[in-house]
Design a protein around this nucleic acid. Sequence first.
DNA 1: ACTGACTATCTGAACGTTGAGATAAGTAAA
DNA 2: TTTACTTATCTCAACGTTCAGATAGTCAGT
Lengths: 171, 171
Amino acid sequence: MTGRDAIDDVWDQWHRERPEIDTALLDVMSAVGRMNRLRRYIDQTLRTYFARYGLDFSEFDVLATLRRSGGVEGVSAGTLLRSAMVTSGAITNRVDKLTAKGLVERSVSTEDRRSVRVRLTPEGIRLVDDILLGHIENEARFLAVLDDNERAQLNGLLRKLLIAQGDTHLG
Amino acid sequence: MTGRDAIDDVWDQWHRERPEIDTALLDVMSAVGRMNRLRRYIDQTLRTYFARYGLDFSEFDVLATLRRSGGVEGVSAGTLLRSAMVTSGAITNRVDKLTAKGLVERSVSTEDRRSVRVRLTPEGIRLVDDILLGHIENEARFLAVLDDNERAQLNGLLRKLLIAQGDTHLG
DNA sequence: ACTGACTATCTGAACGTTGAGATAAGTAAA
DNA sequence: TTTACTTATCTCAACGTTCAGATAGTCAGT
């Protein structure tokens, strides 16, 4: 037994107030609640980390997407919004800010003039490469209590959930 | 083998672009990435559900907290902010909106006049009880692909992560 | 009582996202 | 080529959150 967390208390409170609710459903709510709380801890840490570089997570998300999949030609705004799962307005905003900082640049696609290609500038590449490892190690601290096997288990369960949502490929 | 999800592609992309990064670290980044994407799917569904009742998730979060732990006297604003893991400004805003809708009411604490007690109104209680089960079943659809054992595994892993963050009790 | 430190909540500016709608460019069929 | 539809992106108002600072009440020590 590892002990109890805050969500175990929430489970008990619901069970007391609404005892007719199936405990399996309370377990479901607990799982979602735990992901929510975990996300808040992670977000807070990442926020302060990226702030040191004048970025927020949303901007880094774009830089990282371009770094790992942009090649030299960059990717379209549509690819970015599907990868980040945000609306087009959000991507316009992110790219605007990164452009103002000189980290990415926009150009009209040659094949489709509706389409915008976004590409890392040399400074953009330099910045991602500078902060990437620190970012990952930051995240690693949150999973540090899991051993290799448990981490694989977690990834397996989450993968199963994502596939059930049809999340089988990026935009 | 269950197949691959979008994050498996991201893993491959990073491994190709930055092959020197330890694959265990890529697994860490994948786990966090999966939680992020899953949260986006869940958020989108919940948003449209609560919108039908003129609420958003942040408001429901307050109502639910009061319903399961507020008793008849309600709870303090401080309790709400720690439970929701948001800043005091966010709670002020949420309570303002819920008050305007007649779902909660504020009163000054008798023991500590700095403290504000927030309590569900009868309409507030009615609304939570009306929408709670639909909300939980909504969440249950996201975990439906997991069997009882897997769901327990997931809760166990997430609990372990939360406890490591010191998340052992609500405010 | 008085001082200083701390705690609980509110205020307001800055900011990122959503959602609806606008613009403009591709596309398919008549 | 004209019409109708679809796609890619941008615009902008509404909104919720954070962050920093303001208020005001509490508490311990003097």
